[in-house]
Design a binder for these strands. Structure first.
Lengths: 206, 206
DNA sequence: ACTCGGATTCAACACACGTTGAGATCAGTG
DNA sequence: CACTGATCTCAACGTGTGTTGAATCCGAGT
């Protein structure tokens, strides 16, 4: 049987870095389309690779998802660092940090991938709720409770989360025009005041 | 050819109301799963009908979507009604209205359907951005600009939208526990202050 | 009574998806 | 140099999808 000479099968020389290429492509696709809409075939295509290779490395689409969406920052290190300088200006620091992370990550933003997947996929929503809660919100709540003795600390953390998720969706997904175009320092000021109020302000309806 | 007697084809007597049954099922499915994850077959099943009948009535899945997600409230009537009593307490009125609408609509909530679809489907995001902008945000901006002469009114409206979307996602989709369980009047108070600040407070970073 | 057209179902198509199993190619090790 | 094991591709399967075309049924208008 004469050998067909076109696309070579088998291992290519070199260190190959193919695994990382697949992860990069997956991060971009999952972040911009969400779990369901992103296809293994498209990711493999972006990485210049056969879909079966993705399965070989990550076992399944789910496996690829958790590998690709692993958070590039460790909340156990980041949250204390933001809280350390004290409660004054904490809201502003949180928002400034969030916006800088959004800018740095660009296309391959696990936060966007998680939000896009959680919406319309109850299992992903549960995963995100648990991760958010244990890794971030409970930590923030504990800090605020310790420092200023605020009441209902976890509700305060949830309120912050609702505004932060709102920023992500309205600015990065819906791309509301004036929000997307707004000066960064302006947003930091306005949203920072809101977050600060959620963390330390009154919770009653007066 | 002997007639097969089982599930009857053809028109059944009565006024049938099938079209509305399909729309109800579509509202529920689209709202809880989003455009992509909701399937025509499942909607047809819920309505007790063949998928082909859905096509006959609405032409395509997209056609069904726009028919089902048509907003049950007219912003041109609602927004002025909320703004009318003046700018005092406007934030609180907006949030109270939002929460009551969420409760009333329950499963079949076009807001949730639109958010779930906009995320991960750029076309739907554009549709929602345009609808939100023209039907609601520009109106709110105009009102706030007229009454209190606020600067950058559309940015203020976008800020409000970011918090409102955040409420929807965090409370109705992610179901953050303390947020979902929180007393309604508490939420109205806290979020009302935020919205009021976005509408009438300072926008600089001081 | 007879047609007309809307309501409704059935069977099927074409496609895209995730996944599988087998095989090919090659770097490194003894 | 032979062996091994990792890397990679190919072809295919099974399933679920939106959509189509034809066929059937029956209420209404003439």
């Amino acid at each position: 049987m004469p050998r067909t000479e076109s696309p070579r099968r088998g291992r290519r020389p070199g260190d190959s870095g193919t695994r990382e290429a697949i992860l990069d492509a997956a991060r971009a696709r999952f972040s911009s389309a969400g779990f369901r809409a992103a296809t293994v075939r498209a990711i493999a295509g972006d990485a210049g690779v056969d879909p079966a290779l993705v399965m070989h490395y990550f076992g399944s689409k789910q496996g690829l998802f958790v590998a690709a969406m692993e958070f590039p920052l460790d909340p156990a290190e980041v949250v204390p660092r933001l809280v350390a300088p004290g409660v004054d200006g904490l809201g502003e620091r949180l928002v400034r940090f969030l916006l800088s992370v959004i800018d740095e990550l660009g296309d391959a933003n696990p936060m966007l991938g998680l939000v896009r997947s959680a919406v319309g996929h109850p299992d992903a929503a549960r995963m995100m709720r648990e991760f958010l809660g244990e890794a971030i919100l409970d930590r923030v709540a504990a800090a605020v409770s310790d420092i200023v003795g605020a009441d209902r600390p976890r509700l305060r953390a949830d309120l912050c989360a609702s505004q932060i998720v709102g920023i992500l969706v309205a600015r990065q997904i819906l791309e509301l025009p004036e929000l997307a175009a707004a000066d960064r320092e302006t947003l930091i000021g306005v949203y920072g005041r809101t977050i600060q109020g959620y963390l330390t302000g009154p919770l009653d309806s007066s």
